[in-house]
Design a protein around this nucleic acid. Structure first.
Lengths: 234, 234
DNA sequence: CTGATTTAGAGAGCACTGCTCTCCCTTCTG
DNA sequence: CAGAAGGGAGAGCAGTGCTCTCTAAATCAG
């Protein structure tokens, strides 16, 4: 192994802290995340944890990055495994992957996509990388679908000039080729996708409103695919 | 006035507690809401507040209902003021009203539609009434639009059988007349609307991505109206 | 190998939190 | 007018984040 025993012990302890933190996050939620409780589970006095983590907020940042990475891994793996040439199917797979992860890790999902934790500001330099993996996957998917001719831009509401300007900037920034209508609708689909998942995870539909939320979600993904004009292959 | 001076003083104190609570909610967020701080601002010792509010959670419930009511009032007022016979316009007005309120009261919005506060379970019997006013307004709007012939149900993704069954139940429960496709898409539009607003309020788009978020939102509303087939008058 | 330095943990302590309890004075009620 | 109820004060308990000092162990430099 690399480094001194002390170095390795430090890495191990950091992993333990993250793991215990994730457990507490899952069972008690972000706002109830307590450094002292983590210390207890670690079998150590509370002040000792501060040798590894500067503050409770830094632990939150750790868990934030951890969550983004896990979600990113799962989504990328799912999309890669969807061998289909049909990008409509790939979109469904992507959406399902996000939903599945969100339902399995609701507290982490809440940390990433729910209300910001009061008084906590995520450090952009550490979180923007892993935090954009899902939208990057979505963008990549739409770009490929467009290139493959699997998107027919629907008519309807015109893109306002200021939005068109922003979209143009985004197109250049990411090297995309789709028209304004597609990109603007893709942004809506992105927000709508997380809206649907948040409604489910945060119980906004109300209790016992839907007997088969999975089917509802699949249908919503299909309608969103329609909305961006993602017809798929054949 | 009604009741004894003591009764009136109690009502006044309750209002003060709610008002101060809302201030703290706005400045510090839900998880940082502290009964002791409210007591300080009220000029009273902390234990005295427990004569009025059983627990911190009950104060949260108070603020939850308060928020639902304020949002419901604004949305209903805005829709009522939109005298137009054009239900597409009324939909835009409704969406804008929700967004405007959400941006003005982000902490309350987070309390209502963001991650649930850990360990806090909203008492359904008190919150379901005011909590459903926005969706009721939406449902009413779509029903009237359908009756007025301003909705053409678009083709596209078929409604899965289980979803159709749930939708049928909802239709009967609310006395609606629209077809399955419309109702199912309306549910998507509902979730998508809050998804767009949450993205904006919770800063999920990333910093400086859009120069004119208002225009983006208006466009998103228009696309959502398209998605449910709400063509409007003329 | 030895001495200096860095590191990890322990423990005390401060200010804060939610919440409960008792005590006491005021106010309402029969 | 006497008893009951209401509302505030204050102490206290257990928990929190975080800082400080002290000690012992591990690492590094010569």
């Amino acid at each position: 192994m690399t480094g001194t025993p002390r170095d390795r012990a430090r890495v191990q302890t950091m992993q333990d802290i993250t793991r215990i933190g994730r457990q507490h996050l899952a069972t008690d939620g972000a706002a109830a995340l307590s450094l002292r409780a983590v210390a207890r589970d670690l079998g150590v006095v509370s002040s000792a944890v501060y040798r590894y983590v500067k503050s409770r907020d830094e632990l939150l940042t750790l868990l934030l990055i951890d969550g983004y990475d896990e979600l990113g891994d799962e989504v990328e793996r799912a999309v890669a495994a969807a061998s289909a040439e049909d990008f409509r199917i790939r979109f469904l797979v992507l959406g399902r992957a996000v939903r599945t992860w969100a339902l399995r890790e609701p507290a982490t999902y809440a940390l990433l996509f729910g209300s910001p934790v009061p008084g906590y500001q995520a450090p952009g330099e550490q979180t923007t990388g892993p935090g954009t993996r899902v939208i990057r996957a979505l963008i990549g998917l739409w770009e490929q679908a467009w290139a493959a001719g699997q998107i027919v831009v629907p008519g309807g509401a015109p893109v306002p000039p200021t939005v068109a300007a922003d979209v143009t900037r985004i197109r250049e920034e990411f090297g995309l080729s789709g028209p304004d209508d597609l990109l603007a609708r893709a942004i809506l689909a992105w927000a709508a996708l997380f809206g649907c998942i948040s409604f489910e995870v945060f119980d906004q539909y109300g209790p016992d409103t839907f007997s088969d939320v999975e089917a509802l979600f699949d249908y919503q993904l299909a309608v969103l695919a329609d909305t961006v004009g993602l017809v798929g292959a054949g």
